[in-house]
Every structure is written in C-alpha cells, then in structure tokens.
Design a protein around this nucleic acid. Sequence first.
DNA 1: GTTTTACATTCCCATAACGGAATAAGTCAA
DNA 2: TTGACTTATTCCGTTATGGGAATGTAAAAC
Lengths: 107, 107
Amino acid sequence: MPRAATTSDAFNAIAEPRRRHILELLAHEERSVSEIAAALDLGQPSVSKHLQVLHGVGLVTQRREGRHVMYRTNAETVRTIHEWSRLFARHWRGQLRRIKTHAEEDR
Amino acid sequence: MPRAATTSDAFNAIAEPRRRHILELLAHEERSVSEIAAALDLGQPSVSKHLQVLHGVGLVTQRREGRHVMYRTNAETVRTIHEWSRLFARHWRGQLRRIKTHAEEDR
DNA sequence: GTTTTACATTCCCATAACGGAATAAGTCAA
DNA sequence: TTGACTTATTCCGTTATGGGAATGTAAAAC
C-alpha cells in the first residue's frame, strides 16, 4: 500500500511545506494564482496544482474575478488540525503546571 | 522532485492515519511494540517502521525495558502542530465573535 | 551455549507524488 | 473572430511510500 493521497484529508494536504506557505499567505487576504506564484517564487502550474489539493480538502476557497481566480484560506478547516493536536494539550509541560494552565491550554 | 520524506518533520509524520492512531494510543501511557500492534491490528514490522518515523521527528520517546521497547507520545512535539494551526485562530468563526473569544482562542 | 521472545531491518512491488514543459481551457478586449 | 492574458490540466521522469515475508539483532530463560 502506498502513501495516502494528499487529497485524502487536511493532514496530508499540509504535509507539503509549500502548501503551508500558501495557507499562511492566504490567511489574511485573497490572492490570485499569479500573485501566489510570484510571492513564493514557484511556477504557475505548480501553484495551481497545490491549490487544487488545498481546495479538494476544503483548506482554501475559490472565487472567480474576471480572468483571475482568487483564493483564500478557509481557517475553519485548519481548525480540524488544531482540535486534533489539542488532544495532547494535557501533556504539554510538566504535570505540575497542568492545573494552573488547564483553563487556557485545554480550551 | 518527489514528495517530502515522512521523516522530514512532524507535519509529514502525522499525515499517515495509522501514525496518528499510534500517537493517540500512546498519549496517556507507555506501550510496547507488540501491544500497539495488537491494539491497532497491524503487523509488527509495520508498527516498528511507523514508530521509527515518529521517533525520527521526535513525536515519541523510546525506552528499553528488558526485551520490550516502550514507546510514549512526546506531546511537546505535537505542540509544534498546534502552534502552527493557531496562526489561523483569528479567522475562526465570524469576525463579530473575534473580540469576545480573543483571549481564549488566541492564547 | 541454545532456545525463546521481542523488535528492527531488509527486500519486494504497486502506487502516488512533485516540478517543469507543453498544451488546453476560460475570460476579456478590440 | 482574433489575440492577449490567466489559470487548469496533461505528460514526463525521479523518488519515496506502506504492507508483508523473510531475515537480522538483542535480551531473557533454560
């Protein structure tokens, strides 16, 4: 059995460093494909393909604006990752601080 | 250029669903390789290889106990994932609730 | 030392990835 | 319609994967 497809879920999609960069770039503002390619110094086909992967798992939204297609991070899906990793929050730092920081880190 | 190695960082290591299961299983208590294999219904070689990947990126710790090797999740490394995903917390839920929940979710 | 138990490490193969080049497809302007 | 521009989709070659079987290594029991 080979590795799971990058489009199988958000966890596989964010395994690629360039896709994480794209998500960071699109977190605050919409960008077109060519803008992303310029910002990350990548070829346009590569960027398009990365965006299809991200869109496939719901990590970005897509909106056509004339000839351009504007992409933006869908933070709600990133939240899936956040929630999963939060399962381990109870074990961050030593056991002593657990009670003290429980309210903030276990939230 | 192929996909990044599963051992390149924690993001790549947790892309595999079975490795996430292992981390969940080892979050609260140490387990030996054979116990993990039994719990997840996987072959021993597969489990060993997954554990090497997880250990390589610091997601689990390793301790020999006689013939057994005990593994346990290293939550501190999972925290890396948590912190990255937290970058997007500002965009969870609508803009209106942002101020109200800022203290808890942006922490 | 020999046997048993517990893990780790090959070897194998089918599958999928990534980037780049080339090409296709969709949109607007004249 | 033709042409310019922006994005999407093949096609290609290189590389890594995950599982199973077989094998290697390490530690305890006898």
